[in-house]
Amino acid sequence: MGQLRQRDDRRVGWLFVAPVLVGFAVFYAYPAARGVWYSLTDYTMLGTPSFVGAGNYTDLLADRQFWSSMLVTAYYVVLNIASQTVLAIVVAGLMHRLTRSVVLRATLLLPWLVPNVTIGLLWMWLLDTNLGFVNHLLHAVGLGTVGFFTDANWAMPAIAGINTWAYTGYTALLLYAGMLQIPQHLYESAAIDGAGELRIFARITLPLLRPVLALVLVVSLIGSFQIFDTVAVTTKGGPVSATRVIYFFIYQQAFSYFHMGYAAAAAVFLALVLGVFTFAQLRLLRASNSDLA
């Protein structure tokens, strides 16, 4: 392709990317810079922000509510990611060895298509203390009633369970897609050698899935940290503060108490934590790649 194109592209090129660049500048770059600035100020959305230096950050580090929110979030992430990943690997592994059915896969995808608000409502009803189906079931097998959203010990496991229900199918499909990329002849020769299914899974599927698994883990971990909708619908952070996750903490600081600067500082903190996670996980992914081959 000659020099003719090269000369033309200069103008056309910027024209092609102009709308996207405007979107990036106005709704990503500018607010990101503004967010950092707000985090250094006292700002209630009325009047102008007044500079307070690192004040918000020192307050944040001394704020027990903030740390409790981080802890509650970590608890949720562990419950959710552990159950979701294990279940998804099992489901994907079984599907991989049993069926290629598109109908089955589409059905597994259904909860992922549904808004988290709907899912929250639906499970609030299913887990309702008096009339909920799950408590009917518990009664039927002779167990007592559980107030899933009113008991501080149950609220977080209940929410983690709901989201595991909602996202396991989706995660399983991602892992399944990864399994389909594993060369089929490996399975054939394993079968000829008389290897059992569990052995095949442990020696072929799992090791060769590792890069995909790591990627899926990073993505779902980062998503899990940002849980909000389900909490906002079901418990609103309660009982007491048992489910006040970090997103909800930031939301409350900003829109219930109008501590914009303080909320922005918490958001910066969260962005840093997530950044470290992404970085560490990607390093891990690269490291584990080399000893596969």
Binding site: P31, A32, M260, L270, G275
Partner: peptide
């Protein structure tokens, strides 16, 4: 360079831009 800049926004969690975007 422009592309790298755009893609780096993938690392920023949505809540970080949500507050300033609301004000905007």
């Amino acid at each position: 360079l422009t592309f790298t800049l755009l893609v780096s926004a993938l690392m920023v969690p949505p809540i970080f831009t949500l507050l300033p975007n609301f004000i905007l």
